[in-house]
């Protein structure tokens, strides 16, 4: 529907080639939103995704500058991302401090490290080989952007893992009732740590995609991405207190946000008004979800409150 409106008011929006290539602008956000879904469903949050993306991107650039093949460098970036995520996960499960705070701290730390590594010079690394640049800007048969292909593949994998595997079921279980999950033998700490590892790894993937799309990497390439990624998840129907959300919803959420930006750009709506619109949409989308689910939510809330009376769960405010 959004598309129909935009194509009606802004000729050129529905030009198929434009439409497909415009997805290149928000695939990085989409990829990180996929893994953020897991984190949020367990009741956590990862504010450090943008910083991890910067750090992975810069490291990839440095590896490549020191003579490594670009693809090996890219894989190392993914490994590094997983490692950074592992650190996040360990801080959270071992010390029991809140994910919001732990990842706020690592947001600062990773971001700062990325800036230091990128160096003072002109701060960016570029000149990557053409084969790598194809990943970010090329398209198959001139219509299917490679980035979109990668995203679709990842979305299928994540959807499968979340809905069809034991791991996915445990993710939901923890989000719905961590205490019950713990007592029924789920290795809660294990599952939670993995969600952060995956989040780090996907930040690495996002860095590889962005590096290719922009033909360069910078120390601040992931700045301010965290809130956009979280917004995509929430617009896509993931419950910020954990327990519910689907990959399909998040994919739609990411497209709504991405297409919205593109559409508003085409209408020459200034970036200021875009920010207001995005905020309103976020509130309205979640508000309407809330109202339509009011009944089922109310019964659940009573259960949860009773639980917290017993001191069993420590979830966010309902």
């Amino acid at each position: 529907m959004e598309m129909i409106v935009f194509s009606a008011v802004a000729p050129g929006f529905l030009n198929f080639e434009n439409l497909m290539s415009s997805t290149n602008n928000f695939m990085a956000v989409g990829v990180m939103a996929l893994s953020m879904t897991f984190v949020i469903i367990t009741g956590g949050i990862d504010l450090s995704v943008g910083s991890m993306m910067s750090l992975c991107g810069v490291s990839m650039g440095l590896f490549w500058q020191h003579g490594l093949n670009i693809w090996i460098a890219a894989i190392l970036a993914l490994v590094l991302g997983a490692l950074l995520g592992f650190i996040n996960g360990q801080i959270i499960v071992r010390t029991g401090i809140q994910p919001l705070i732990a990842t706020l701290a690592t947001l600062f730390i990773y971001g700062s490290l990325a800036m230091v590594l990128a160096g003072q010079g002109d701060g960016s690394i570029y000149g990557f080989p053409q084969s790598y640049l194809f990943l970010g800007t090329g398209s198959l048969f001139r219509i299917m952007p490679v980035q979109l292909l990668v995203f679709s593949f990842l979305a299928l994998v994540f959807g499968f893992v979340l809905q069809r595997t034991n791991y996915g079921r445990r993710v939901y279980f923890i989000g719905n009732n961590e205490a019950a999950a713990l007592y029924s033998g789920v290795r809660v700490q294990h599952v939670k740590t993995y969600t952060y590892v995956i989040s780090g790894c996907m930040s690495g993937v996002a860095a590889v995609l962005m590096g290719s799309y922009f033909a360069s990497v910078r120390g601040d390439m992931g700045l301010n991405y965290e809130l956009t990624v979280i917004t995509a998840c929430l617009v896509g129907g993931v419950n910020v207190f954990g327990g519910s959300g689907t990959i399909f919803g998040v994919v739609v959420g990411a497209f709504i946000l991405g297409m919205l930006q593109q559409g508003l750009n085409m209408l020459n709506v200034s970036s200021v008004e875009q920010s207001i619109v995005t905020g309103l949409i976020l509130i309205a989308a979640v508000g309407i979800q809330q109202m339509s689910g009011l009944f089922s939510r109310r019964t659940r809330r009573i259960k949860k409150d009773r639980m917290s009376d017993l001191g069993l769960v420590s979830t966010g405010r309902e």
């Binding site: 529907m1 959004e2 129907g237 619109v277 309205a284």
Partner: peptide
């Protein structure tokens, strides 16, 4: 069980973005 809820939310998001896009055109 939340699928319906999510669907409703998404639809509403789309509807709102449309409405706002409508408001956007005068400035254009």
């Amino acid at each position: 069980r939340d699928v319906k809820k999510i669907g409703a939310g998404l639809l509403s998001a789309v509807a709102i973005s449309m409405a706002v896009a409508g408001c956007g055109s005068p400035s254009q």
